[in-house]
């Protein structure tokens, strides 16, 4: 039985295996690239460790300790060995291992991106479906322009304008940070995601404050996904609506709502799933900027602040991690296709 099932899903499995080997190669490339970038960095990493007042013998000692006297190939080998052991070095700012810093800041970013993607799906999908049904009419054009706006606006700028209007003038939302200062540190972190942690603790005051703080940055971060998901939904729906089974359904006299949502929409779900995964990945890019604007203590802000400090270890680990997430999300979309789309089997 087990032998049989090993042979069965041959083609799909082989494609996934092929993809996996390609992904491994790409990851190796990412490592090489970050290594090369790290080497050309004009900041002297030895000086950063020993400080400017160190004498030359201390400097030389640390220089050798860090392996800079070896050839580049040997250094690359050490780099790979350290990474394989999960050692990304220490961060200058906190003096702690970079991995710890990233693990600490990452939940805040995931929380932000998740609320943003919920907004992106909730608005983008209906918008795209509606645009497809109104193809070529006024509503379609209006939606097209709206989504082009979503692509064209610098997300950090919308964030600042949002803060000025909704926090500064109207005071509808919380300002910078994840919660009001008075509530800071009240909830013990379990998942690191404040909304979930406060709900688990049953502390609804903190939950409310956290909600008021997350809603604006998440909304603005999600604008880009609204555009992306909306446009993709529209084009997927248009492909379906021109198929013969839709004509059949209409001829049968089914109400338009059923034709659209139960027939056409059901058939684009797999495609949508992959698009959402890609959109989620690109949210990380926006998060780098939006977290800086909203002083959101997440991974993006960690990256930019280490960047300005010239903290090579932290920057390279962060960049590597984002690349890794991107590659994995791409792999995931491919696998999703294999699993859910019977035609690829």
């Amino acid at each position: 039985m087990s032998l049989l099932s090993l042979n069965l899903p041959s083609r799909g499995l082989r494609r996934v295996m092929h993809r996996l080997s390609a992904v491994t190669l790409t990851l190796f490339g990412l490592l090489t690239l970050t290594f090369i970038i790290g080497r050309v960095m004009p900041i002297d990493p030895v000086l950063a460790v020993v400080g400017p007042d160190a004498d030359s013998s201390t400097y030389d000692q640390v220089y050798r300790q860090m392996g800079f006297d070896r050839s580049l190939w040997v250094q690359f080998g050490y780099y790979l060995r350290d990474l394989a052991q999960g050692d990304f070095g220490n961060a200058l700012l906190t003096g702690r291992p970079v991995v710890d810093d990233i693990l600490r800041t990452f939940p805040a970013t995931i929380e932000l991106a998740t609320v943003a993607i919920i907004f992106g799906i909730g608005v983008g999908v209906p918008m795209g479906v509606y645009a497809a049904t109104q193809r070529g009419r006024l509503a379609d054009h209006v939606i097209r322009v709206i989504s082009l706006f979503g692509y064209s606006t610098p997300v950090f700028w919308v964030g600042m304008i949002g803060l000025i209007i909704f926090y500064g003038w109207l005071n509808w939302v919380g300002g910078a940070g994840r919660v009001d200062l008075a509530y800071d540190g009240l909830v013990t972190p379990v998942t690191g995601m404040l909304l979930i942690d406060s709900a688990l603790a049953g502390d609804w005051e903190v939950f409310g404050s956290a909600f008021k703080h997350i809603i604006l940055p998440a909304f603005i971060l999600g604008l880009n996904s609204v555009s992306f998901i909306g446009r993709m939904t529209r084009s997927f729906m248009l492909t379906q609506l021109s198929q013969e089974y839709i004509l059949t359904a209409r001829v049968k006299g089914l109400p338009e709502r059923v034709v659209i949502w139960r027939h056409a929409f059901r058939n684009i779900l797999v495609q949508l799933l992959t698009i959402v995964a890609l959109a989620y990945g690109s949210l990380l890019e926006g998060a780098v900027l939006i977290e800086t604007v909203f002083a959101w203590p997440g991974f993006g802000q960690y990256l930019t602040s280490s960047l300005l400090l010239g903290d090579m270890n932290a920057v390279m680990a962060s960049v590597l991690l984002i690349g890794l997430i991107f590659v994995l999300l791409n792999l995931l979309t491919d696998v999703l296709y294999q699993v859910f789309d019977p035609r690829t089997r």
Partner: peptide, 12 residues
């Protein structure tokens, strides 16, 4: 496989 802004950040 890198988002363009992040890669540009690394290069800068």
């Amino acid at each position: 496989s890198f988002p363009s802004l992040v890669l540009a950040l690394a290069f800068v």
